[in-house]
Write a protein that binds this DNA or RNA. Structure first.
Length: 465
DNA sequence: AGCACA
């Protein structure tokens, strides 16, 4: 099992690939230099430069396998080695068949840098030191620091991509001068890439965030991470700081909660602009972005403490996020940007089409009307139908309804019912599906777990292959 | 001089 997973790493036994792996490149070798070297052999469709710890490796993808083979063959028998700036470059087939995600992040020049400071803890490098170091290249607008798995990180916002690039080029791989660091810190290398952010959202001047463009920003001397953002209301009471973005944590998650499920649930209160799902200390959390604070507040009030499924499953806890505009990938399984045309609406449209085409429904599907609040079981009380082997990965891909119902054995025992609609007192949930006439709530509430219409009634559901 | 990204 374990020894069969990878190809041998020896160059003469590697299987050919359109992708070539180049080593021993000069420092900060540009894409142009790479293309110059490779283009005599064929059409280059993608590159990835400055790879590896020393940033002296690269990948080049040819349009055709034969072009890659011709380059490798040529240099295998050439008396002149491949060279860039006089340095011998070693070429071999990559062990991957294509370059993925090139320039998706970290390589597109932007005005905000993501800086990872290796080998230090958050307390070792003050925000003032970071400011000092990066101010050498231009006016630093904002800094936000945080601790991630990768280590201590900072987002540093400059006026423009040119300034940010000059800072990156000068500082990437370098170390902060010793005299600016505490004695006990050994080495502290900077790893710098471009962030996809363009404008950081700094709420307070604090020991972990700074906005140098706004001297009037309130100071929060104890901006402890994880503490709910709050402010003092007019009544003198502490008041949660509102936001158009909700942070949802999901308790007792016995069923998969997907972006599509969340979109449907939260769309009952207004247009959902963006959703991002992520893991946080073993649990699942999601950020849901509305256009305005009011809508978010209504959704928060209505949904807090309610469960997505009957039986106390997937209980929602909502708070306001510090974010105001999520920076998410347009369409993947963890995030969605519904403000981009053509993205994200397909699943719902198809779901609606299937639903109105008279797909079958479970008897429980009628229980979503007002007055049927989800039964709240005590925590930890679960039904007996959970079957981990029925997880989403083995599900048919032709069913476009959110693939959220993992445990549907046949016949289905105790089908958990999508029941959020009951959380909106006295109203039918309005499905904000694009191209559906406003107010015409013709869709039935979504019925998760159904495998509508794609199989004849009485036949077992189709799983996997 | 020996394989990225999530």
């Amino acid at each position: 099992m374990s020894s069969t997973s990878g190809q041998p790493q020896f160059r003469y036994t590697q299987t050919p690939s359109k992708v070539l792996h180049l080593r021993n490149l000069p420092w900060e070798c540009t894409e142009e230099e790479l293309v110059e070297l490779c283009k005599p052999f064929g059409k280059i469709v993608n590159t990835k430069c400055n790879v590896g710890a020393n940033r002296n490796q690269a990948f080049v993808e040819f349009a055709d396998l034969n072009q890659a083979i011709s380059m490798v063959s040529y240099y295998a028998s050439s008396s002149e080695p491949a060279q860039v700036r006089g340095k011998t470059v070693y070429i071999q087939y990559s062990n991957r068949q294509e370059i993925v995600n090139n320039k998706s992040s970290g390589d597109v020049a932007g005005n905000v840098l993501l800086v990872t400071i290796e080998g230090v803890e958050a307390g070792d490098v003050s925000i003032d030191v970071i400011h000092l170091v990066f101010s050498a290249f231009g006016f630093v607008h904002k800094i936000a620091t945080f601790e991630k798995a990768a280590g201590f990180q900072a987002l540093i916002q400059f006026s423009d991509a040119e300034t940010a690039s000059s800072a990156r080029n000068a500082l990437d791989g370098r170390s902060i001068p010793r005299y600016l660091l505490p004695e006990h810190v050994g080495s502290c290398h900077l790893r710098i890439s471009f962030s996809a952010h363009t404008d950081l959202n700094i709420k307070f001047q604090s020991h972990r965030s700074r906005d140098y463009t706004n001297p009037y920003l309130p100071v929060n001397p104890s901006a402890i991470e994880g503490t709910m953002q709050s402010t003092i209301g007019p009544d003198g009471k502490k008041k949660e700081l509102e936001s158009n973005v909700l942070l949802a944590s999901i308790e007792n998650m016995q069923y998969a909660v997907t972006v599509d499920v969340l979109h449907t649930v939260f769309s009952a209160f207004g247009t959902v602009q963006k959703i991002a799902i992520f893991e946080k200390n073993g649990g699942m959390q999601a950020l849901i972005q509305y256009p305005d604070v009011t809508t978010a507040a209504v959704a928060k009030e209505a949904l807090e403490g309610h469960c997505i499924y009957d039986g106390g499953y997937c209980k929602l806890h909502l708070s306001y996020s510090r974010h105001t505009d999520l920076n998410v990938k347009a369409h993947n399984d963890r995030s969605r940007d519904y403000t981009i045309p053509e993205s994200g609406i397909l699943p719902l449209q198809q779901a609606a089409a299937v639903s109105s085409a008279g797909g079958w429904q479970t008897p429980q599907a009628t229980s979503v009307y007002p007055g049927n609040m989800p039964a709240q079981l005590p925590d930890g009380q679960v039904g007996g139908s959970w079957d981990p082997s029925m997880q989403a990965s083995g599900r048919p891909t032709f069913v476009s309804v959110p693939t959220t119902f993992p445990g549907q054995t046949y016949p289905p025992p105790a089908v958990p019912t999508y029941s959020m609609a009951g959380a909106v007192p006295g109203t039918m949930p309005v499905q904000h599906v694009d191209q559906s006439p406003a107010g015409m709530a013709t869709h039935r509430p979504p019925q998760y777990g159904l495998q509508p219409s794609v199989r004849p009634a009485g036949q077992p559901p189709f799983y996997g292959q």
